[in-house]
Nucleic acid binder design. Structure first.
Lengths: 238, 238
DNA sequence: CGCAGCCCACTGGTCCAACCAGTTGACCTG
DNA sequence: CAGGTCAACTGGTTGGACCAGTGGGCTGCG
């Protein structure tokens, strides 16, 4: 027997999801006017308040412009949406999952590589020790990719924590959210993520950081994360 | 006479802002329970619906966990908030503006440098031409920093557009939003942003991109944006 | 006396209905 | 025909009622 916890979804969440999908997929073009709240409420078969809760969130995402008295209009999401919208792009089916995966991997590479450098440069002794400890928590060889996800998160979180850069910290959260949305089932299927299992490389990287070898840490991190980028790029080409 | 357009702020926006500020500033600690919606409505002096609209957005920002029947609890924003929360950090006064500025500048450096590389590698002819055109639109010498903001945005937008990386595109939006929130008054006051005015360097960079010199473009972009990072770092030290 | 189990008070979720407040354009007036 | 007026939209706000989970206190059985 396979039990999954029931997921009770709030109506406003459903409305939000559908509106976002309409916009990101381009079915609602930029500058186009949305139906009025009352009409949306009728069409969705829900109360107007639910529509408003959803609409406010769509606005927060930078996807529409709401103005009292006037109509609510769609914005060009590429020019106005924030990085947090990344994860919605997947579920909206606006872009092929593999492309989003590649984009995430590329951003991760440059951000994490720089983080490794900064961490080596200015992290405290405790923070650098934490990085090494996280690296050593990596499972040995035979572990499956799924089992490596946790330790990998811990490792990079420790590195980024060592930089003291909030933007990197929050950016990591967003990228992980986007990645999760794509689902690492895709990752497993494609045989991506060899890098994850490379325990030794992570320990080497941690040592470089502990030794304050900023340049070396930067180089190794870039190489390490570049592997994933290359794999995805290869998968796309097929 | 100095006329500023009146800004009519929705009550739910005010509530949202205050709640976010309470959380980001740490006055509401993680795992702490928020007052009930009915009590919040009474304390803010607004209707419960307004509270709910705000609360839903706070949830979307990853700052609270809402559960029907149970109480709404605060989350650890460093571990759960997305990059879009960056701009709120400023207005909430959770962190010194200069630190946020530094963090943004650092992230911009690594992202934009990588974007320059990728753009040189794989942008179409039209896209690379657009980059060059944007660079040439830079004002000459005597322009003030404020006047350079527009052209600078255009230039980097063109570069990132050339990479075809959505994550970079959306990330740029978020970083700019955060930067704007800090207010470039701070930037001007500190005499930061010499880089902005360096028209020649941008044209050189554009040429490297047009010539598909990925490594060269990466190096120059990193140097160019690194100037800002260094300036801010120096300002912080004082 | 101890504890299982019920029950109610409290949480958030949804709905209905009304009214306020800007925006817009059709229409009427001079 | 130019101008101003006003009514019919738009979103913004309020009140109140009720549904639906949660959790702790109380009750009553063993």
């Amino acid at each position: 027997m396979d039990i999954t916890p029931v997921t009770r979804t709030a109506v406003s969440d459903v409305v939000f999801g559908q509106l976002v999908a309409e916009i990101l997929s381009g079915r609602l073009a930029a500058e186009e006017a949305l139906p009025g709240e009352r009409e949306l409420a009728e069409r969705f078969g829900v109360n107007r308040h639910a529509i408003r809760e959803a609409l406010k969130r769509v606005q927060q995402s930078g996807l529409v412009r709401i103005s009292q008295g006037g109509k609510t209009r769609v914005l060009d999401w590429r020019a106005n949406a924030g990085l947090d919208t990344l994860s919605q792009l997947v579920s909206a089916g606006a872009l092929p999952p593999l492309q989003i995966l590649r984009d995430i991997a590329e951003m991760r590479r440059s951000v994490a590589a720089d983080a490794a450098r900064l961490c080596a440069e200015r992290a405290s002794d405790e923070q650098r020790a934490a990085v090494l400890a996280a690296a050593e928590s990596y499972p040995t060889d035979s572990a499956s990719i799924a089992d490596t996800f946790g330790p990998d998160m811990d490792f990079w979180t420790a590195v980024i924590e060592g930089t003291g850069n909030v933007a990197y910290r929050l950016g990591l959260n967003t990228l992980v959210a986007g990645f999760t949305e794509v689902g690492w089932q895709t990752v497993v299927d494609l045989g991506l993520g060899e890098e994850y299992v490379d325990r030794d490389a992570h320990i080497d990287l941690a040592r470089l950081i502990v030794d304050r070898d900023a340049a070396g840490a930067h180089r190794l991190a870039e190489e390490l994360l570049g592997r994933t980028v290359a794999r995805i790029a290869a998968a796309i080409k097929e």
